[in-house]
């Protein structure tokens, strides 16, 4: 399939990546090239094949519902860009 400029803009929005207008065409070409590589898969008939989500036959482990983590808030927030009174600050969302 072909990839249009508008597709690139849409993908960039879904991925929350700002893309400058003048980069769109280059990016479109690069992504289209990668998709051409990916689409080589279509040569292979995979009709009855079971999809493989995980390399090993494993089921998710369960553990007892116990508190195992201590509070590390101060330590974890020490690397945050902007915090106040234990809260992460972002631009106002609700006017």
């Amino acid at each position: 399939m072909t990839l249009e400029r508008e597709d690139v803009e849409k993908i960039a929005h879904l991925a929350r990546l700002a893309v400058a207008e003048e980069q769109l065409e280059t990016l479109r070409g690069e992504l289209a090239g990668i998709l051409r590589l990916v689409e080589q898969m279509d040569e292979l008939d995979t009709g009855d094949i079971l999809p493989m989500a995980h390399p090993l036959e494993m089921t998710q482990r369960l553990r007892p519902d116990l508190v195992t983590e201590e509070n590390h808030r101060e330590e974890y927030q020490a690397v945050a860009p902007l915090v106040e009174n234990g809260l992460y600050l972002v631009p106002r969302v609700i006017e």
């Binding site: 990916v38 898969m41 094949i49 079971l50 493989m52």
Partner: peptide, 13 residues
């Protein structure tokens, strides 16, 4: 794409 790739992955395994 994703489902197809997971099937190809099975073929490779």
């Amino acid at each position: 794409y994703y489902l197809k790739a997971q099937k190809v992955r099975q073929v490779i395994a």
